[in-house]
Design a protein around this nucleic acid. Structure first.
Lengths: 210, 210, 210, 210
DNA sequence: GATGAATGAGATTTCATTCAT
DNA sequence: TATGAATGAAATCTCATTCAT
């Protein structure tokens, strides 16, 4: 985990790296609590138990800190996209889907605020926005691929279906985290897996009914 | 369409009501363009071609204006929820679903910025958040009812499924509006209708249709 | 009771005169409640159940309304000053003092806020301030005269004593009105009469003790 | 001398404490020059040769600064109240009274604007008003005690007499400071001491002295 | 004669960022 | 490396006064 622009122009020692870490953590926690736009640098430094001066020693701005978090997040999103194996109609496919959704939910639980800052257009910086777009595209592309392989119901185009799936994943996770819906992580995973698997292999999954 | 707190404490004439209307419209347009948190009161009054003084004659703050829009939106959302008829597996059910989604998409196209300001933790005011929660609940409750009547695939619990559906509706509409995905309103409606109908009656619908 | 500058430039009919009266009353009440500087024109027109437009039909400004009240007050103060008869050491003198203090207390009860706006330098307008100074001077001059006639204790100069007396009258009345000291008007009059009479004729009044 | 609410939530270093001091001083000077209600934060920061940003680093508002001054003032007032020794009819008592009035006059010369902001209904904050009431009460209670010990003229109740005395002290000092009455501090002290001592021991003091 | 609408200058307050220690 | 202090541009909000009906 690197820091922001100023941090990368110096070589940090152990203490400096610890401070960067504290600031990144505090930033993420505060973005989660208040949302990115409403977060003030003061909130972050207070959460990190440090000072304004120190903040600007490692980050050029609030957006720079978001950028550093975004890089981490993008890495994890792309790893996640790559890790989605083929999904078959049977229990193995269903298990693979669950495994993958568990990963997604974990990443979302951590990086949700960053993902939302991306998806709402709350980021001025073009480069930063591009990182977000690329991450979501990676997920979507892989889903398109897997949905296409699954031979979905007639009339369902893999591409819009993939977008719809990502939309559902993102927001459902958000609802589950932010509202008190009474779902824990495992409920989220199970629910989404059931719905997605049914959506992809409705006929097969409902063999019992056919 | 009432104004904000100060407006409700006086009795407006036609001119005043027109100004309120202009400000609400300008607010909505500006929230759409810049997002709620990034919008300045100055942006709103410029869009409404009026002055700061006038703004505060009718609204106590930017948040107060959001609240007034939220009341309108909540009304429409609850009307919309009430209007969802039973969804059968046949073409009639599919048509009803499309009709309803057309309504949802229209409301979202208008009030999307308000809905997002609700759902993101961008609003401090508890009362306002409660309005949002109530709307969401109204939609979800009706969906739960309709999904329950549709005898969904085994393993699918109507309640989480309804939440997932609302999540998908909201975010997919947002993606379609904000990114250039190349979908027009009718594409959005068709796509969502197809997915939801398949999700509710996948096997049956396909068997009958296929 | 005339109105402000604009009112004096027109000739008012019954309705207009009633409105002026309502505004003067409302002004006085509001100055009493909030103090002159903190009172907004809006507070006055609300108390008078009329509008901003109407206010400026009769008064040029908030200060103009204060000025109109000040003229009334000054008239009463000067009448009051003129009415202070000689104060002898006996019960008649004491009764005269009480009578006069009863008048002062009544005027203060009504015009206290105006008197305080004068005595604190809260009035920008020089002419207005001059009216206040003249009123207080009238009172003080008469007191100097009466104290001089009373042959006060050695070492007591009538002029500073008169200032001290006015100071006491003004502030004691104010304390009694604003704090809950548990004094009613008659208590105030009795207390002040006792103290002033003792101050003027200590030896004589305390004959009993001598 | 602590600062306002924001200052108490951080730990200040020497430089910060100096700035607080500068702001308190500037505030007091400006309140004296313009009166509390007419003073703008801008006037204060100009007098303190600093910026708006800095002001709000240490004080939440103009009223908060008044509150900090009020605490200082209340402390001094209560010390002053405690320091009033027994007042006898002889020259020692008179000297003690003068000594104490010299103290009162000095505090009033410094904190007059604060005391007046208290006593006029210019302060919304209840806590602040309470501080003022407490100080007033401390002074009055001690005066009641001393007047009671002095065996005053018959018909004079120590409690209202004490209020009247405080009223006179406050306003006479104010007149002397604000109008050009031609009194210097020592004249004020002598005049008040003469009047009060005569008021407490009029007959006796005169008989002995005359 | 009365009213609500509108204004804009000016006051207050915030906060990202730079500075000095 | 760390910190609190300082800044000022920009945002929010107020309110005496004028305007149009």
């Amino acid at each position: 985990m690197a820091g922001g622009i100023p941090a990368r122009q110096r070589d940090l020692r152990a203490q400096g790296r610890r401070t960067v870490e504290r600031l990144l953590d505090a930033g993420l926690r505060t973005f989660r609590r208040l949302g990115y736009p409403a977060t003030r640098v003061d909130d972050i430094v207070r959460a990190a138990r440090t000072s304004h001066g120190t903040f600007y020693l490692y980050f050029a701005s609030k957006e720079d800190l978001l950028g550093a978090l975004a890089l981490d997040c993008a890495q994890q999103m792309e790893d996640l996209a790559a890790s989605l194996g083929p999904i078959g109609p049977g229990p193995d496919g269903r298990a693979e889907l669950e495994r993958w959704l568990r990963g997604f939910t974990a990443v979302y639980r951590r990086y949700g605020p960053v993902i939302r800052a991306w998806s709402e257009s709350q980021v001025g910086d073009a480069e930063l926005a591009a990182i977000g777009t690329r991450s979501l595209r990676a997920i979507t592309a892989k889903l398109v691929e897997r949905i296409g392989q699954a031979a979905p119901a007639p009339g369902i185009d893999p591409e819009p279906a993939a977008f719809a799936a990502v939309a559902m994943l993102e927001r459902f996770n958000y609802f589950a985290l932010s509202r008190r819906l009474g779902f824990d992580d495992e409920d989220v995973v199970t629910t989404l897996a059931t719905i997605l698997h049914a959506g992809m292999f409705g006929a097969a999954a409902r063999r019992r009914g056919g």
